[in-house]
Design a protein around this nucleic acid. Structure first.
Lengths: 220, 220
DNA sequence: GCATAGGATTAACACAGGTTGCTCTGAACC
DNA sequence: GGTTCAGAGCAACCTGTGTTAATCCTATGC
């Protein structure tokens, strides 16, 4: 399977063979991480960058009342926290939602890449801007739309993002996360997420078979 | 009054006299914009950067049902959309909430600044990262906290941000926006924002006199 | 001084979604 | 084959917030 990160970048940037080789070089050391583990904790000053190769992770914060608020998904091909250095320290944590394959790229390697490969440098700055736009989208979506639209939005976003790295068909994908994860994302109770999913199933908008999610309409 | 943008940067970066002069040079052409006007519209590919010198503006999106969702405030010293170029086009609009004094810096000038003044370059990349962290904070705050905490959070955030540019006292500031603006921010109805404000006043957590907002507890 | 308009305030009513607590299912493990 | 446990499903009840729609206030312009 081709490197999903490279695959994602190539949809947007013209990578030279040298760019591609450099990225492949940098991401040889794959580490396996089980579900429910932190990659980076709030307050950390990470000295390397993580690249998700397989599985789902998320950015999250723990509220004073102990509940977890997921503020972003990280799917294969996503990179975390290239630029935290400028900010100082992490304002949130990053944890796995499913078992993941993760590459940790040391800071020096990243600096080397950005210095010697202008296209990669550009690409590395582009990623957080996309993240920011997605955050705005989520902010609009969560909390001010009825629960069914919220959940539907999330499911569709994941479809599109997985398609971009070749991990989804025209209208379906594997979703290795629980309903509780979904509820922590949408800011709904798990009970209500369950209600909503059933309603969506009832309307034929989604079809689930175990962890496999199909969205029939999306192929129309 | 000193330039609020410079004031903000100096809290974080060591600006040389040259840096400061370059910024002052770049922001001489102040434009006055009345309330309720767009600076940039969704879909635009802006060819200059805006710097708010006075007044409140916001990033917002219009939902399919016509309602407005405010996803960020821009207060004096804030800069908008230095880096949209990388993304392509604006995914949201920027509009004034109150009358504003705005400086438009042409792209070439920005490029000149980032090329010739390393500290400024660093500062310009720092700003959107802060924006992103703020967005995460908002995403957590809005929609999954009771309305009173949401509104309180917003009011306190504005206090801190205005203090950073010398436009607030220890515990008070001028808030030139309406309750409708607040409700479009929190994702609440204007009626409920009104209820919440009265409750906060009743508890002595805020004191309002016209547009002037005081938060007694914050000085404790 | 009067008219006007945007903003703030209030009240009555309806409902989406939270909470609690239970049951059911299936996979992993001994 | 039985046990265990996480995840999914379900029902009853309750409350926070939205909706509507009317009224009041305060600046502003004529």
């Amino acid at each position: 399977m081709p490197n999903p990160f490279i695959r994602k970048l190539e949809r947007r940037f013209q990578l030279s063979e040298a760019d591609r080789q450099a990225l492949i070089q940098a991401s040889t050391k794959v580490r396996h991480v089980p579900a429910g583990e932190d990659l980076i904790s709030e307050g950390d000053v990470p000295d390397h960058v993580f690249l998700i190769q397989r599985g789902f992770a998320c950015r999250y914060k723990i509220l004073p009342n102990g509940s977890r608020s997921i503020v972003a998904y990280l799917v294969p091909g996503d990179m975390c926290d290239l630029h935290v250095a400028i900010l100082g320290q992490m304002d949130h944590s990053i944890g796995t939602l499913s078992p993941c394959d993760v590459v940790a790229i040391p800071r020096e390697t990243v600096e080397d890449l950005t210095t010697n490969f202008p296209t990669l440098n550009r690409a590395f700055w582009w990623a957080p801007l996309v993240d920011e736009a997605t955050l705005r989208e989520w902010l609009v979506n969560m909390g001010r739309r009825p629960a069914d639209l919220q959940v539907a939005h999330i499911l569709c976003e994941v479809l599109v993002r997985l398609q971009a790295v070749g991990l989804a068909t025209e209208n379906s994908y594997d979703l290795p996360i629980t309903q509780v994860d979904l509820s922590d994302t949408a800011g709904l109770s798990n009970v209500h997420v369950n209600r909503v999913l059933q309603e969506l199933r009832g309307q034929g908008l989604i079809v689930t078979k175990g962890r496999h999610m199909t969205i029939p309409e999306s192929s129309a």
